[in-house]
Design a protein around this nucleic acid. Structure first.
Length: 410
DNA sequence: TCTGGGGTCCTAGGACCC
DNA sequence: TCTGGGGTCCTAGGACCC
């Protein structure tokens, strides 16, 4: 049996519980409220919403401006990622007492493998739900089934604070009447295409012609056809372990960037952050990418493969600059990003033609990382940032490296 | 005061090699 | 005389997830 545990309106519930603990008078979960970024800094979107806000039509991802236009008295609170990591950890700690197979799918969702019969797994689901509510002060939905896809679909049924089963024989009654867009992996674009050919419910998709779906949606057609029929053979990974394939950071600037000196400063801050994270993972990569979004919301990217693997801030930065010079035509920018990909585990004592300079680079970076670990992230910064209005470390939502995205494979 | 940030996977087209 | 074709890698962009 597989259980899927999903924290209800996670960011909002966690902030709500923390505010109550601090003596707040109002429970955000019971009034129209959202967690949202700073509009002044151009981060003004809805990250999470309360159920009363949802009832008024507020959607995750829309602008706070739109949300307020639907709901004029909306309460808006900023995210507290440090708190969310603590809440998530506490949830995982409880789940581990029920199974050694707990896969952390995201900050607020876990899969858990349960050895035993159906009735016992449902009992366990209720026990988990009640323990989290009692000990941590927030509610979860738990879905129970025989595979991850159905367990996840089950936990999405009615919210909050519910346990649902969704076994194969229950699909017709519980899943097939739902709109096709509710199926995992059917997003906006796929939904539009499916509706265009008269497939409106998950049931329609489940009984559609597989070859025809393949023509319409390529391999994605086969994937969603199988999901609509409850077919998913991926396993729950033990100890949450999965290797990163890329590490990137990006930043939406509070003003449109037009000067190359500003671009350089942002790229350095981003490269530093990416370097720190990839070194912490003990990995290195040979594919460097930059991407940016113009003031007109046009997204562009550019990448290059290096003839060597690296985890060095300087190497990442040098290459990011070259890529940016090649790709950027001077449009005003609102977002910049840097990433390193095709990561592999770093081998110790690797000798190459780069040995001299690279060993020096490695030692420098190791030293810097150690100082940061001991005295704080910004205890040591590059001279470029002294007396500058730019931040030495840019991007990221806090110290969340260990949260691994598992993902569905076919 | 309008539109985040971090990922994974797939596809199409071109380059390049044999 | 004439204008191949398969395999693989690279790149940019898009779709999806939380």
């Amino acid at each position: 049996m597989i259980l899927h545990v999903d924290a209800n309106s996670a960011y909002l519930s966690w902030t709500a519980a923390a505010l109550l603990e601090k003596g707040g008078a109002v429970d955000l979960r019971l009034v129209p409220s959202v967690i949202g970024g700073s509009e002044k800094n151009r981060h003004g979107i809805v990250l999470a919403k309360s159920i009363p806000a949802k009832k008024m039509g507020v959607k995750t991802g829309e602008t706070l401006f739109e949300a307020r236009s639907r709901c004029p008295h909306l309460l808006v609170y900023p995210p507290d990622y440090g708190l969310y990591v603590l809440a998530s950890d506490s949830m995982v700690e409880i789940l581990r007492q029920y199974s050694s197979f707990v896969e952390r799918y995201s900050i607020d969702e876990c899969f858990l493998k349960w050895e035993g019969r159906r009735e016992e797994s449902v009992k366990a689901a209720f026990a988990i739900k009640e323990r989290i509510k009692k000990e941590l002060g927030f509610t979860v939905n738990v879905g129970v089934s025989t595979n991850k896809l159905l367990a996840k679909m089950a936990s999405e049924l009615k919210k909050p604070d519910m346990v649902h089963t969704l076994f194969k024989e229950e699909m017709e009654e519980k899943m097939w009447p739902l709109p096709v867009g509710d199926l995992f992996m059917v997003g906006r674009a796929t939904e539009r295409k499916l509706k265009g050919v008269g497939i409106n419910t998950i049931g329609d998709l489940a009984s559609a012609d597989k070859r025809w779906l393949r023509l319409l949606l390529k391999s994605h057609g086969e994937l969603v056809y199988r999901y609509a029929n409850g077919i998913d053979e991926t396993g729950v990974s033990e100890n949450c372990f999965s290797l990163h394939k890329s590490v990137g950071n990006s930043l939406t600037t509070s003003y449109d960037v037009t000067a190359f000196s500003d671009v350089r400063a942002h790229l350095l801050g981003l490269s530093e952050q990416v370097g720190i994270r990839v070194r912490k993972l003990g990995m290195e990569g040979d594919l460097i990418s930059v991407w940016f979004k113009t003031e007109g919301f046009l997204s562009l990217s550019h990448q290059r493969r290096l003839p060597y693997y690296t985890a060095s801030t300087s190497r990442i930065y040098e290459n990011a600059i070259i890529l940016m010079e090649e790709a950027w035509k001077g449009q005003p920018l609102r977002q910049l990003g840097v990433s390193i990909g095709d990561l592999v585990k770093k081998k110790k004592g690797q000798i190459s033609i780069w040995e001299k300079t690279e060993e020096k680079e490695d030692r420098l970076n190791e030293t810097l990382d150690a100082v940061r670990k001991r005295y704080g992230r910004e205890s040591i910064i590059r001279a470029r940032f002294a007396n500058s209005c730019h931040k030495p470390l840019v991007g990221g939502v806090g110290d969340m490296e260990y949260i691994m995205m598992g993902g569905y494979e076919i």
